[in-house]
Write a protein that binds this DNA or RNA. Structure first.
Lengths: 166, 166
DNA sequence: CTAGCTGCAAACGGTTTGCACAACG
DNA sequence: CGTTGTGCAAACCGTTTGCAGCTAG
């Protein structure tokens, strides 16, 4: 029953409740951005979201994109990730409603993002909290390596040979 | 036997070997920066290293700090971390020789950095590599939460009460 | 000598901010 | 209507880059 449509509806309801509780305004921009976020299944950055909003002909400013993403992160409808790969600096976002927290795998060659769940991470979290008297709220686990996508492997191999020639 | 002095000596030797192998120059700046890095035990950013070099009256430019840090990361004498805490964007570095890879705990209140090792992470790494046909090269595990340092707890509590009053 | 390094300052790119105008409640 | 949100462009800040000396090899 958790198909895409009902997920968006649930997200909209949750955002509405959060805005009311916090005394924030239910502006059309905020809901339009939520809609866009929940229509995608990837890990996007702020600029990609900005561009997508323009293509969907609901033009919002970059400032509003950043502002709204912060709101959505605060009410746990969106997760913000800082993958330390090539694009060092920028954050990437993903919807979070109905999705358990997971680890990310980043291909250092093609920057593909994959996801992976492992219950042992939960155990580590508990151990570390107890050992160091630290109240763990959230975590980020990222693996860096090489994916096995054919095109990526071929491209990387070619690049390596090219480099060796010099 | 692995006291601080011998660690620095070992690091210097390793850097020298790496520079020779790669045909890079053994400039005094590079060794001076290595020295500073191995004299500290914290997680520092580029600017802090730059400032420390100036206080140690071996003034180098920011460009050289960044350049040298990259060299040191390449030859595995330094680890580069992107903690996604408040200081969103900047990288933090730590010496790596003779230290096993570890997870980091970041206090969301005082930004203290702690370290923690757990062998189960290795197991997850193996599983994830096999499951997704992904050749894992490295990883980053960061826990965010609240530390139990007295001063931090007190400060956070005061801030919360202050916020509630408005 | 001369390729590679350093220093400086300007450029860069993602994000934040200040301010004028618009619109939710 | 008063307060909050939005849009725009400028500011910010960590990092990178271009270029003119400098220096290790």
């Amino acid at each position: 029953m958790l198909n895409s449509t009902s997920l968006i509806a649930e997200a909209r309801t949750k955002l509405e409740g959060y805005l009311l509780k916090k005394g924030l305004r239910r502006s059309s921009e905020r809901f339009a951005i939520l809609e866009e976020v929940y229509s995608r299944d990837d890990h996007f950055d702020a600029e990609e979201l900005y561009q997508a909003m323009h293509q969907r002909s609901f033009a919002v400013s970059r400032a509003t994109v950043y502002n709204t993403l912060e709101v959505l992160v605060d009410c746990h409808l969106v997760r913000k990730n800082q993958f330390g790969d090539e694009d060092n600096t920028k954050s990437r976002f993903e919807k979070s409603l109905g999705r358990q927290q997971h680890a990310h795998l980043i291909c250092v060659n093609c920057h593909r993002v994959m996801e992976f769940c492992d219950p042992r991470l939960q155990l580590i979290k508990t151990t570390v909290g107890n050992t160091l008297q630290f109240h763990v709220e959230s975590h980020s686990l990222v693996f860096y390596g090489e994916c096995s996508d054919e095109a990526c492997v071929a491209r990387t191999k070619a690049a390596a040979e090219n480099a060796a020639m010099q």
